[in-house]
Amino acid sequence: MEGRLNQHIENSVQFFRLRSQLLFAQNKARKEIFSEIIGESADNNHQIRLINRGSNQLLQRNFIVIRKEGLVGRIQSVSPYQSSVQLIIDHRSRVPALIQRNRVKGLIYGTHDGIEMRQINQHAKIKIGDRVISSGLGNLYPKGILIGWVSGIQHKSHELFKTARLDSAVDFNQIEEVFAILPSITDSNLSDEFESMVE
């Protein structure tokens, strides 16, 4: 009798542990909203694209935009039926990132026609072809989204940091459709606003 009770308690503990793990995993499975590119900035100094989804489709400022190839950018502003997306190649864009192979951190800067990873530790060993993913620092871009590959490394002896040129995973001249990520319940800052809006 004592043995069977102990077994039930053990099963119960296991159930709640697994349940919380499954709920955590379920929360992390983000909902994505399919959007089409319907326009772009009219000048040569900004890299902005317009998409055909807005606040009526629950999009908000700072939601992340991706494609299956990798990270595209973030939503800069929303109106009821369209939003403007700041691409990561825009010179105002900054994305915390890390090199997947050795977890070296840096910051992705847009250079208008491409991207660079700057503020890399000068002693870090990076190689051409290394995959670069978002690091999740700053709580804006989710961790683990592919950004690109290292295509060149710059480091001068008097500089504190290395800079790596990257080949972007996404061809920004060819994009026609993107996915906007709705934050999961566990994504703290954004989800508060999101939940209140859903309610």
Partner: peptide
């Protein structure tokens, strides 16, 4: 008008 279309800083152009 170009500022509005470029989604940048209003007044720049």
């Amino acid at each position: 008008i170009l500022d509005a279309l470029s989604h940048g800083y209003i007044g720049l152009y």
